[in-house]
């Protein structure tokens, strides 16, 4: 007999159990949080107020909206700020609120205001927290081994940077952002570098999760062999990383707006689905482990 621990649902059987509560909306919040904060960070670097604004709006409406839709008692959301000392949710909300406050104030300042840079930098620091806190949130849960790895925040950070870079490129091609020539030349290389790094991190994450205990292994199997293997390989690896990488190589800095739009959509699809699927394959350990015969 192979492994004798079954994957169970509502039945009264001791076994691996998939978490069922964190799914689409949480993945959306993660997604918008990272893309928005990534764009915000990049835009501050590139000194694009419009980019900053879009980044802030993505965080406010996308991430904030997803959270509000998700909460069982949304009107009490403010209570979530009570425990920054121990709770990453609290810290995330604080970071998000401060990022939004500082960011919006900064971009509403008249050009040349001496306050702009300090506020923007403060907002960038907060945005950085917004980008990575969900990685810590997942890591801080001992219950679900595949989330409980140090690579999780790293992966979050790099996905945020990738998402930000992609969005900047996209907005540039749409003409919303003006970049200096130095940056225009540099950005496609940054994008390619980030894609390669993300691919490596995802691979490292996968290899690392094989040995996160039996429940981690179960998650791994679900992701690469089970019902989630097709979306994982097709959308996360194929569309999100390999396709974007190839397109970026082939098209290079001369890529037209259509190509860039395609790359952007592909990247965002991969971005959304990696976290969505990682949430879905979160598996709890069986309470009393294996039963020996």
């Amino acid at each position: 007999m192979g492994r004798s621990i079954p994957l169970v649902e509502k039945e009264f059987v001791a076994g691996f159990r998939q978490q069922t509560e964190w799914a689409g909306l949480i993945a959306s919040a993660f997604f918008f949080g990272k893309v928005g904060s990534g764009l915000f960070i990049m835009s501050v670097f590139l000194q694009s107020r419009l980019g900053m604004l879009i980044g802030l709006l993505i965080v406010l409406c996308g991430k904030g909206g997803a959270h509000m839709l998700y909460l069982g008692r949304p009107l009490r959301f403010w209570r979530a700020m009570s425990r920054p000392g121990s709770s990453w949710v609290s810290r995330g909300i604080w970071a998000m609120s401060l990022m939004l406050a500082a960011g919006f104030i900064a971009i509403s300042l008249p050009p040349g205001s001496p306050l702009f840079m300090p506020l923007a930098i403060f907002a960038v620091i907060c945005a950085f927290v917004v980008a990575v806190y969900d990685g810590f949130l997942l890591t801080s849960s001992p219950a679900i081994p595949i989330w409980n790895t140090a690579l999780m925040p790293v992966m979050c950070m790099f996905y945020a940077l990738l998402g930000g870079t992609t969005m900047v490129l996209f907005l540039k091609h749409l003409g919303f952002i003006q970049l200096s020539g130095k940056f225009t030349a540099l950005l496609p290389s940054v994008e390619i570098t980030l894609l390669v790094v993300n691919l490596l991190i995802v691979l490292l994450f996968l290899v690392g999760s094989i040995n996160t205990g039996s429940a981690g292994r179960e998650s791994f199997d679900l992701l690469v062999k089970g019902p989630y293997a097709v979306p994982f390989f097709a959308l996360v690896i194929g569309v999100g990383l390999v396709f974007t990488l190839l397109m970026s190589f082939v098209a290079g800095p001369r890529a037209g707006a259509g190509t860039v739009a395609l790359i952007t959509v592909a990247d965002l699809i991969g971005h959304y689905f990696i976290f969505f699927l990682l949430l879905k394959v979160g598996v709890f350990k069986p309470v009393l482990g294996f039963l020996k015969i």
């Binding site: 978490q19 964190w22 909460l71 069982g72 008692r73 949304p74 979530a80 219950a143 679900i144």
Partner: peptide, 10 residues
């Protein structure tokens, strides 16, 4: 409780 379910996954 606001129903964020962080405890559920923890």
């Amino acid at each position: 409780c606001i129903g964020c379910r962080a405890c559920y996954v923890a």
